[in-house]
Design a protein around this nucleic acid. Structure first.
Lengths: 252, 252
DNA sequence: GCTCCCGCCTCCCGTTGCGTGAGGGTCAAG
DNA sequence: CTTGACCCTCACGCAACGGGAGGCGGGAGC
């Protein structure tokens, strides 16, 4: 089974030039040549190329791939295993970026100003464990997000302004209630919690009670959200959290 | 709020050189300079950089990013939405690669020779819909795989040889049974099906009956696996499939 | 006021992983 | 025996920075 460059290139979905290049740098030299000097690749070459492409796809530099390939005693299994690990790692990272983007959109909803460092924390090297969990907790999926995106896509500038106005009105009223000393698990606070839930449902996505309590916990757990509510009234984040939980329990 | 290159570089986790480069090509020119010629970035610059980095992380060339950024009427939301889409797309693609690698390992287990095109179909542009489903069906998760990987990692060359020998012995016997004309839902065929299941459990991963039937379906649905069994005896793939199902039902 | 060191500036060359010809041989088909 | 699709070897080009040289700026400690 011998193949020409063109055949190999088509099969592996690379250009002929790429194969020439791999030959030049000695990463993948065909096992032989035809009398006329044509490169002839055999099955072993193909297998090697497959591994090379996989590592490349994962972003490895060619030199490093050469080391990996030429170093050990040749079995393919370790490569597959390693690639599997790298891939799942990558997927995890991308999922965190998704979570971060969803967070950014959520923040935009509340009109939070992100600090310079916060803007970029998405793309840095964070503690993987910590963030993996967080991404899970944050939404546990992306259904709500999709709905929100779909709906807000059609919003006009006026819609946004009305939304903001409603939001500010609600903020004013819960601020006043907070000042009045009314208990967080009282009827009035619960009514405002419910109103908050309906605001979200009307403007963004269906927000059942469990999701609402989940959001409430995020408001106290995540300093960025906390700051938003604390700016309205110091202590309001916890107050709202309690009101939302009380409201959710009473409706259950 | 004005920042120096160094501050911006640290926040965005890029090098100063990168910022210089973006300035050179006009992708991100700081909004001003200090009297001494120092670059001064403001918040709007930071925001722009954030979007740039996000697109870069997604593999866009700088020129294209410049077009995207300078083209429309400036809102950030469309970018977030677009990035979200791209990310989920990427994740899907990576998950397919994971599935393909798991397939390759499975194939190795059976000692299947992949054809040249098959080797590379992982990395091409396949029909997304078709494959997304397939990845779902294939394992519906990766738990079994992890177990398998963990176990096989410690196998020696002799282990592999013994495994192969057991497998060939089993293949010989089911081939003989097939020749004898014994029914696929008969006791003997079911016994061999059960033996197959235990072989997998012993060598690779726990294989309960539902998973076994799932594998059986894969053996007839996926031409690559089918070919493996058809090479033992034409018609054996379907025969084994039936035997496995019969065995699973009888044990339920 | 002076010094010291860090951070900033502007060239400018180097690297990776190919893309893209130019100029010319090869091979199977008609 | 020509035509078109493939193949070969140079050889230059390009994106996206990396990294260093050589030289100013600036604030903090003496």
């Amino acid at each position: 089974m011998a193949y020409t460059v063109g055949q190999v290139a088509r099969a592996a979905r690379v250009t002929v030039r790429t194969l020439h290049h791999y030959d030049e740098i000695g990463l993948l030299s065909p096992s032989g040549r035809s009398p006329a000097g044509y490169r002839r690749y055999d099955d072993a070459d193909l297998e090697r190329l497959q591994v090379i492409r996989a590592y490349r796809e994962l972003g490895f530099p060619l030199e490093e791939i050469a080391e990996i390939l030429d170093d050990p005693g040749g079995d393919r299994l370790p490569h597959l295993r390693r690639q599997h690990e790298l891939l799942t790692g990558r997927i995890g990272k991308l999922q965190e970026m998704v979570a971060a983007i969803e967070f950014a959109m959520e923040a935009r909803k509340l009109d939070i100003q992100l600090t310079p460092e916060e803007r970029f924390e998405v793309f840095g090297d964070f503690d993987p464990d910590e963030h993996a969990e967080e991404a899970e907790r944050r939404w546990g999926g992306t259904e709500a997000y999709r709905q929100s995106a779909e709906r807000t896509a059609r919003y006009s500038k006026e819609d946004w302004q009305r939304n903001k106005a409603e939001n500010e009105d609600w903020a004013r009223r819960i601020g006043a209630l907070f000042d009045s000393g009314a208990p967080a698990d009282g009827a009035e606070a619960m009514a405002l919690a419910e109103e908050h839930r309906q605001l979200i449902t009307r403007w963004f996505y269906d927000c059942p009670y469990e999701m609402h309590t989940c959001l409430a916990d995020m408001y106290v757990a995540d300093p960025r959200f906390t700051a938003y509510f604390e700016k309205i009234r110091p202590g309001l984040a916890a107050y709202l959290n309690e009101a939302i939980h009380a409201n959710a329990i009473s409706r259950a």
